[in-house]
Simulated scan of single mutants.
Amino acid sequence: MVSAHAERLRWHTAAQLLTVMRDAPGITRAAAAARLGIGSGSASELTARLRKAHLVDEVRAPAQGRGRPTAVLAAHPEGPLIAAADLGVAGWRLAIAGVDGRPEIVAHDEYAGHELSAALAGMSRAIGAVHRRHADRLAALSVSVAGTVSDARLVQFTARGSRDVDLAVLTAKIPRRVAVLLGNDATLAGLAEARTGAARDVTTALHLMVAQGIGGALVVNGEPVAGGHGAAGEYGHVPFGDPGLRCPCGARGCWDLTVDGRALARHLGDRVPTDPIGYVHDLAARRDALSRSAFRKVAASLGRGIGALVNLHDPEAVTLGGVAALLRAQATGAFDDAFRDALMAFRKASPPPVRDALHGEDGPLQGAVLAGLDHVTTPDALAAWVGRRRA
């Protein structure tokens, strides 16, 4: 009888192959073997074992001119699935993804005002429907939330004025064997950029995402710095803003209030927008003198704060997600000047590059997928998947 330890070791290289396949979509078996440092014979044996376990398949790549068709690694059509949900300020989405990490949206909806409970109920029904369709394959539910997450709980959903939100309704229609993961949207977006996005070439990256307010993550070696209780990265609540402004979080002077659609509306004398993200997009299309002035003020606050965080964290690169890249693009000069002026003297000659996020506003959902796959593609999880299939 094979021991549990031996079974874990048996699936160690398999877990590494799945990581390579996820990080390099469309990779061939030979190229994956080269990355892992194994021979072609070992790669063939490993791929055959994973195909038998319904984890990996090889499919024909799209034709590119003449020559023999190329077979690339892909998720097995009967393999494990991740359900990844993204709960934002004004809407939610639910996707499923195989071990290749490619999400397919299967449900979505919008909500307004304080209809959070109705939104959660709708998400729960959609999650239940996914489980009914894929009862034997659903391995994890990974949820991204535009709120403060601590110790796997949503402790503050500032965008909706809620605290200690009970998310148990999301798991009401799925069995306990399905792993449930909860993460902050900006943190998960940072994970996505570090693994498969604009920061995949650096060891230490700072990701900042503007939606309603600003959040982010410091990602080191592909892992977000979570803090003692998992609530790190609440950059929007650093007092870089006006001390005369009280934030919905309960503090004063939060940076949040100076870098998003609410800040633009305040500069223009408009009412607080119910959808700050949509407001930024709408205002960017106006291009009148007043809107340009508002964008310069917001972009300057964004650049100045990022400069301060560069002094704090010393990242090799900074990535901008959500509407942060759009805010910078509307007033590049104001952003660049404020960013440079905030840097310590020794950094000014070679500041870290500030890049637009590759995943854009899909970063939180993509990060939720990756977090789920981290959980279900460990050697232990792969061994458990095969054990269930044998039972």
Rank of each mutant, 00 (worst) to 15 (best):
T158C: 08
S44M: 08
L283D: 05
A186W: 04
V155M: 06
L188V: 12
A205P: 03
P273L: 01
E193N: 08
A31C: 01
F339Q: 01
G367V: 04
L309N: 00
A317Y: 01
A71Y: 13
R66H: 10
V20M: 08
G360A: 10
T70C: 12
V318C: 08
S144I: 12
A263Q: 12
V143P: 00
A211S: 14
F346I: 02
A300L: 14
G387E: 14
D288T: 12
A381I: 12
L181H: 11
D242Q: 03
G363M: 06
P353V: 14
N311W: 10
H375S: 13
P315N: 07
V272H: 11
P351K: 05
V310M: 01
R125W: 04
G215T: 05
F240H: 03
R8V: 11
A152W: 01
R49H: 13
G241D: 01
D57E: 15
A61W: 03
A75Q: 04
R286Q: 15
D314W: 07
R51M: 15
L268G: 14
G236R: 05
A189L: 09
E104D: 11
G91R: 01
A48P: 00
L154T: 04
D136G: 10
S44Q: 13
I38C: 08
L170M: 13
V2Q: 11
A34H: 13
T319E: 02
M123K: 05
T204I: 14
T47W: 11
G244Y: 01
A299R: 04
L264W: 07
V298C: 02
Y235D: 02
A192L: 08
L73S: 05
G113K: 10
V178N: 08
L167S: 01
E45W: 09
P351T: 04
A43P: 01
V89L: 05
F339V: 06
P352L: 08
A325I: 00
T378H: 07
A345L: 12
G101M: 07
A381R: 09
A129R: 11
A4K: 04
A172D: 14
L81E: 06
R252C: 12
T148F: 05
D100R: 07
W255C: 03
F339I: 05
R35P: 02
L36F: 13
A334P: 04
G333S: 12
D100W: 05
P364V: 09
A325P: 00
R296A: 13
V259Y: 12
E115R: 14
S142H: 07
P379L: 09
D201H: 15
A251G: 14
E110I: 01
D109H: 10
A217G: 04
F339L: 06
S124Q: 11
A232V: 09
M344P: 00
E78W: 10
D374K: 09
A384T: 12
H229C: 10
R51A: 15
V99K: 02
A192V: 05
A33I: 04
W255N: 00
G236I: 09
G360H: 07
H12N: 14
G197T: 08
V298I: 09
H54P: 02
A30F: 03
S301L: 00
G363H: 06
G253M: 02
